[in-house]
């Protein structure tokens, strides 16, 4: 186990280096930089623009820029966001946890609901329940998020003012403790509902398909033949096996917890990282974009390793290979 972990960690080093080069090139080779944006100012002159570029090292050859960036990265210095004029780490730290808060709640809700709905659908394949679930799930999936979000806002925040109209806390709120927590929860409700509805579809289908596959296996038939109760057959024998392929899926959702949901955050005016990164793209905030993308790269690699390890724990056949 330990060996596997070490081996995987060492294997991920070249992946990281490759990814860093790719991330660097993708952003720096895109036309324009943040100084280009300043050129629209009436008082700007070419000489001044060149001066600012030089101050930020943008006049250096690409390989030098990469080495400087990488060197700083290795010492934990992500650089300064040109958009916020703050260290990249502090910008990410400010906004990422807001996104994480929504994402983690959505993740939990989504897995609970999808597992229940998906498994029930599998157990009653081709029943009215199954068809209804399939229909609903596909409908929910095919809604554009902005549309569903705006609709929810119109109903629940404007017409019947049950929930607040976007934001994370009430304006000018000086609440603390539980009152503050409750305030945030009220603001969370709509984005969480929308994101859960949008994401639940595919996951339900996974659960249903996996369950259907397992139920037809010989060992399930054997379990039934032994005279076990249906409940035991389903939850002990079938479900555990059906869950195996979903481990990978689960692990791969981990980076998504931190990446933010651009459209939903915009509509619900949620101070998340997705919106900040989108602004960063338009305004060419390279340090922020590269730092954030590298963070996601690392998270993805870690999640992959985690998936492998969890697979080993859950399935002895994999562990011994």
């Amino acid at each position: 186990m330990k060996q596997l972990l070490i081996r995987r960690l060492i294997q991920s080093i070249p992946t990281l280096i490759g990814a860093s080069i790719l991330v660097f090139l993708v952003f720096t080779l895109a036309p324009g930089d943040f100084v280009t944006q300043m050129s629209a100012d009436a008082n700007m002159t070419q000489e001044r623009l060149d001066e600012i570029r030089a101050l930020h090292g943008l006049d250096q050859p690409l390989y030098k820029q990469y080495l400087t960036w990488m060197g700083n990265l290795l010492t934990g210095n992500f650089g300064e966001s040109v958009l916020h004029r703050q260290p990249v780490t502090s910008v990410i730290n400010t906004f990422m946890w807001n996104s994480f808060l929504i994402a983690i709640i959505v993740l939990v809700l989504q897995w609970i609901i999808a597992s229940i709905v998906g498994i029930m659908a599998a157990l009653r394949q081709y029943s009215i329940y199954d068809s209804a679930v399939t229909l609903i799930v596909f409908m929910a999936m095919s809604f554009p998020s902005f549309f569903l979000g705006l609709l929810m806002l119109k109903f629940f925040a404007v017409d019947y003012q049950i929930f607040p109209l976007g934001g994370m806390r009430s304006t000018g709120s000086t609440l603390t403790g539980w009152a503050d927590f409750w305030d945030v929860m009220k603001h969370l409700a709509l984005p969480v509902i929308v994101l859960t509805l949008l994401n639940i579809g595919s996951l339900t289908r996974y659960f249903r398909t996996n369950m259907l596959e397992v139920i037809r296996q010989d060992y399930v038939r054997t379990a039934r033949a032994k005279g076990l109760k249906e409940r035991v057959v389903i939850f002990k024998h079938a479900l555990r096996n059906a869950l195996l392929p979903l481990i990978t899926l689960f692990a791969l959702e981990i980076p998504g917890l931190f990446s933010g949901a651009i459209i939903t955050e915009r509509i619900f005016n949620w101070p998340g990282i997705g919106r900040v990164v989108l602004d960063g793209i338009f305004q060419r905030d390279y340090p922020l974009l590269m730092g954030f993308t590298m963070l996601l790269v690392v998270l993805t690699i870690v999640a992959n390793i985690l998936a492998d390890l969890m697979y080993g724990v859950a399935d002895p056949r994999v562990r011994n290979r």
Binding site: A157, V158, P164, L165, G166, G167, R266, N269, P271
Partner: peptide
């Protein structure tokens, strides 16, 4: 901070 999606509604609800 307001966004284009909800600016007018914010005025409407008094936010």
């Amino acid at each position: 901070s307001t966004t284009a999606e909800t600016q007018i509604q914010s005025l409407k609800t008094g936010a």
